[in-house]
């Protein structure tokens, strides 16, 4: 089976500082993979390269077998690669419904229309309503985004991602900033997503990681130091060192 997302020897340097170091892994349909690592391990930098916000210094990124290393963000999105952000990024001047509907309309090629509002066209409306319903925020449809609680904003962020009908969804700390007792709602929302989507989640909340992931990648000093099941990760000395000791120790231990 062709991998939906494949990173081949990806590296990124800023001057003399190597922030991504020869990272390779693959994601296939239905994968639920968590990428963990201590602060400064280079997780977000890696995600930025995957999404196209940052060009890698070396290596290749394949999306559905197609090399997208030099492709624009828009081309990657068209290829089914969608991401969310560590700090929620929403269209704050719009309502909840408009945020999701825009993503739906963009995917359907409707946002070039200049003289007809299609947000309430039956097929478009049905789609954004069902996405909001899936994530349990349908009752907020008419609400301006600025009036949402932070946890609701995170759910809306996920809803926008889902509206793009991703094949690969990269979630950058989807529960960041959400009160601990509300993070199960985020997990529940992710659990409702299509089983065909390959999901890569970057997360610090280990409870969330172990409940979500079938496979865990551990990053330290920009390099992958371990890959395994949640149970294997819990037992691995290199991972424990990465979180509790120095990065250099962790890489030696791996």
């Amino acid at each position: 089976m062709t991998a939906l997302l494949e990173l081949q020897h990806l590296s990124k340097s800023f001057g003399g500082l190597r922030v991504t170091d020869d990272v390779s892994f693959t994601l296939s349909s239905g994968d639920r993979v968590a990428l963990i690592g201590p602060n400064g391990a280079g997780k977000t930098t890696l995600v930025n390269q995957i999404s196209g916000d940052l060009d890698p210094s070396e290596g290749r990124i394949l999306l559905g077998g197609v090399d997208v290393t030099g492709a624009s963000i828009a081309e990657r999105v068209q290829g089914g690669l969608v991401r969310t952000f560590q700090v929620t990024r929403l269209f704050t001047g719009l309502t909840v419904a408009e945020n999701v509907a825009l993503a739906v309309m963009q995917r359907r090629g409707l946002t070039k229309r200049m003289f007809s509002s299609v947000i309430n066209r039956a097929d478009v409306r049905e789609e954004w309503q069902s996405i909001l319903g899936l994530l349990g925020i349908a009752q907020l449809a008419a609400m301006p985004v600025t009036k949402l609680a932070y946890g609701q904003q995170r759910l809306l962020d996920l809803a926008i991602g889902l509206a793009m009908k991703p094949r690969v969804l990269v979630l950058d700390e989807p529960a960041a900033g959400v009160p601990h007792d509300e993070s199960p709602r985020i997990l529940e929302a992710i659990g409702k997503m299509s089983p065909d989507i390959a999901i890569l989640m970057i997360e610090h909340d280990m409870d969330l990681v172990f409940k979500f992931a079938k496979r865990v990648l551990v990053l330290a000093s920009g390099a992958l130091i371990f890959e395994g099941t949640p149970a294997e990760v819990k037992e691995n000395a290199a991972v424990r060192t990465a979180y509790l000791g120095s990065y250099a120790d962790a890489r030696r231990a791996s």
């Binding site: 963000i73 828009a74 969608v82 990024r89 269209f91 825009l102 963009q106 995917r107």
Partner: peptide
């Protein structure tokens, strides 16, 4: 209007 609010977010939905 979405671009005005957040250009990067707009790019990330393929605009």
């Amino acid at each position: 209007r979405a671009i005005k609010d957040d250009t990067l977010r707009a790019r990330m939905i393929g605009v």
